[in-house]
Design a protein around this nucleic acid. Structure first.
Length: 266
DNA sequence: CGCAGCGCCTGAAGGC
DNA sequence: TGCCTTCAGGCGCTGC
């Protein structure tokens, strides 16, 4: 499930190969989630940026091609179209190369919009500062968390106080900061601790090329390595790496969270 | 307006 | 072996 480290890994791999490349043709799976990919035909890609989990490619006509990878989305530049039933979109570049979007479960989506006009993608439009940008500050994070009474785990996944965190890195950050996932009121010192943990966990994930539990592959088709570094996610029942007591798991707002009842008091 | 709940998707894994 | 159920979960949408 691509979160910030996985999306940034893909962005870094794709950007050099896509910069200044014309989009000559495109085809998609017949779903409104993917058909807007064809709107980019006839333009040239200027660069590839990222905001949270969204890849954003500014085009030379003032629009942006936006790609969200959902749960199982993957991108690669290929010299030919692969025979693969899960390719949901592809763009033909110059020199007989293709940008190929593969997404088994079709949770991803593609849009082509005037630059900065994100009303068709409300999560992108309303999301907070990117977790690895200088705009993500402890003070701002504390302030943003205070605007909602939802559980802290739910807030992290909402992309509103900070953009780029999903269930894996959110679980890790809460464990590292010693914050119970169901906590609703976050003090200033706790927010500062959690801010540091979010940054640290995402940077570690990025340094390891992302987390591959099952589906994630980078733009070269290789898995990440951060799954070997996870301290809490998916370790329910196993000993906490800090206090050795068994980690627990519980479902909050429809998502399974692992945590240490000792190190993450309510 | 905030937010809880649901639907979208498919393959893997577990139960019988 | 094979069928059925459950699970994974980000995000958009609906309705309270």
């Amino acid at each position: 499930m691509p979160e910030l480290p996985e999306v940034e890994t893909i962005r870094r791999q794709l950007a050099p190969g896509l910069k200044d490349r014309p989009i000559q043709d495109a085809r998609t799976h017949e779903s409104h989630k993917f058909t807007p990919a064809k709107d980019a035909v006839g333009t040239t890609v200027l660069t590839v940026k990222r905001k949270g989990k969204y890849l954003i490619a500014p085009l030379d006509d003032g629009r942006e091609l936006i790609i969200h990878l959902g749960m199982t989305g993957a991108l690669a530049i290929a010299p030919a179209l692969p025979r693969d039933p899960y390719v949901r979109a592809w763009w033909q570049l110059d020199g007989d190369e293709f940008l190929v979007y593969r997404d088994v479960r079709r949770f991803g989506r593609i849009r082509c919009v005037p630059a900065g006009q994100y009303s068709a993608m409300p999560t992108l439009a309303g999301q907070g500062p990117d977790a690895l940008s200088p705009d993500f500050t402890p003070a701002g994070f504390h302030l943003a968390l205070g605007e909602s009474r939802r559980r802290i785990a739910t807030q992290l996944l909402s992309q509103r106080p900070v953009a780029g965190v999903g269930n894996i890195y959110g679980t890790e950050a809460l464990w590292m900061a010693g914050v119970h996932p169901a906590k609703r009121r976050i003090s200033r010192p706790t927010a500062e601790r959690l801010h540091g943990a979010v940054v640290q966990v995402l940077e570690a994930g990025l340094a390891n090329g992302g987390t591959t539990l099952r589906d994630y592959r980078n733009a070269k088709g290789a898995p990440g390595r951060h799954q070997h570094a996870l301290a809490c996610y998916g370790r329910s029942g196993q000993p906490c790496l800090r206090c050795a007591r068994p980690l627990q798991h519980r479902v909050y707002d429809g998502r399974t969270l692992a945590f240490c009842p000792q190190c993450q008091p309510r």
